[in-house]
Nucleic acid binder design. Sequence first.
DNA 1: CTAGATGCAAACAGTTTGCGTCACT
DNA 2: AGTGACGCAAACTGTTTGCATCTAG
Lengths: 158, 158
Amino acid sequence: MVASSQFRELCHRHSLAATHQRQVIYETVMSLPGHPSPEAIYGKVRKKIPCISLATVYKNIQTFLDSGMLREVSLHHGAMRLEPNHEPHHHLVCVRCKSIEDLDAGNLHPVRLRQKLPRGFQVERIAIDILGVCRDCASKNPSGEKTLSSKNHLSGEQ
Amino acid sequence: MVASSQFRELCHRHSLAATHQRQVIYETVMSLPGHPSPEAIYGKVRKKIPCISLATVYKNIQTFLDSGMLREVSLHHGAMRLEPNHEPHHHLVCVRCKSIEDLDAGNLHPVRLRQKLPRGFQVERIAIDILGVCRDCASKNPSGEKTLSSKNHLSGEQ
DNA sequence: CTAGATGCAAACAGTTTGCGTCACT
DNA sequence: AGTGACGCAAACTGTTTGCATCTAG
């Protein structure tokens, strides 16, 4: 409410209409601790706008992600993906088509913990994802709209 | 087919019955390139066992994950999770309850690419997940069955 | 005034579950 | 013989869509 003008400006920068719902959703995401799910956001937004639709929440989250105003914790690949590769390796993940390519562990210097982790966390392994745009997506659409579908996305059959 | 006895032994080590379906599913996962989804696995398995049920595929994938015979590429948190934290940081992810905690980037020495990535991949950022068992899960169940539900899982309301 | 945003309900996709039957050990 | 696996269909959860109405620019 206080920063209403800031929000309007932010929307303007991303060519989005500054609606009330949009502002409340955005502020709610930013105010929630941790890494909220759409459902959790909806729950809290509804306290301010009881009649808001869950679809509106989803649509706006998508809008924020597309515009870069918000980010996903880890990419949501739609379906579970299994890892047959037992060799130590990391992943090259395309943020557009969501393809995942293996990258041999030898290509990265090993990660080093600079010091102790908080509260009795027992480390099992460290996963590194290099996020970016793969060659195919970059060539298809150098700027950056949206691509999906294509390639590896849900396939596995060669 | 060739390695049938190997598979029986593998199952025995994990106290699982060595059924035909189980073997075909396992071999299919291992044979598929990349990071197959359950649907893709089902598609290929059906070529060998046309009447197999999708539920059987899911149940066995779950069994393999639980027993450690297979691994997920990145944890499937059930729902999309948003990242309000714009500061550079990484994540501490519990493989049991799937909670996600932030870890300040200063706690890790920066990752260094040991050399060029394959084929025109445009890096946007590098995400590091430290996977393991969080204190709560470790204390509740030091051995390692299954826990889920509890904590951060889908919540966001305080 | 018009493009785009909202709300609703129905549709989807991915995954899980219950239960009767069947097969491995 | 008994425990656990399979197959089927129905249920669920998370997410998306179509369309009529409304609103910011």
